[in-house]
Nucleic acid binder design. Structure first.
Lengths: 108, 108
DNA sequence: GTAGGGTGCAACTCGATGGTTGCGTGATCA
DNA sequence: TGATCACGCAACCATCGAGTTGCACCCTAC
């Protein structure tokens, strides 16, 4: 029951800026420069976050001519929810339904 | 839609040692010294983690004579799941059921 | 009362990381 | 072809935080 994959996800979600990026990208795909224009940090800082998020499998890179668009691929999020349901499930039976609901998702 | 409470939870879950502590404590309440005996870090390091987890509302302190026992109170975890369902819900309708399932929990 | 074990507080080290700037590369368009 | 814009890489800085050690305090038991 190694939360091996969950490690990367929790690490990716740890930073508020990365959660903001994920929320923003879940609404609509965008490029690093585009995102940097909407946020108070530089393009390179955004790019670092996007690289880390991609590493966790939460983003998909798509080259579009001169720029690169990123789109959310939230499948790995269920690894985090699985872990949470394991911890919380022992305390509250309602959380047990989570792993059941997520059990049917395509893994990876 | 402030992920204000989720901030503390994601920060608490970011560290692997803290997740390990939570998993351990969800099985059975314990004291800091007790936990330090089972882990490769000092009691004070454990105590710091427990303080942070308590601050996020994930643990409840219970003084028992000379020692202090900690027990898991996973209610704040649903703040994290709520955030995840917001991001992932736009991609996969299955995750939308999560917030519905968690919506009936006592908030705070 | 006194010894001992658990807790709490404070100072310190050190590695990780979020952020920056600078520069080189590649693709687009006039 | 040349100007421009987006990207990638590298070096650098500063802060944060996980871990440690040391010591003082409190509760319990003998």
């Amino acid at each position: 029951m190694s939360s091996d994959a969950a490690d990367a996800v929790f690490d990716a979600l740890a930073d508020p800026m990365r959660r903001q990026l994920l929320a923003r990208l879940s609404a609509h795909p965008a490029s690093a420069t585009e995102l940097a224009g909407e946020l108070p940090i530089s393009r390179q800082a955004v790019a670092k976050h996007l690289t880390l998020l991609s590493g966790a499998g939460l983003l998909q890179r798509e080259r579009a001519g001169r720029d690169v668009r990123y789109r959310v691929t939230p499948a790995p999020l269920s690894d985090a929810v699985d872990w949470i349901s394991e911890v919380g499930g022992q305390w509250d039976a309602r959380l047990a339904r989570l792993s059941a609901a997520l059990g049917s998702r395509p893994r990876h």
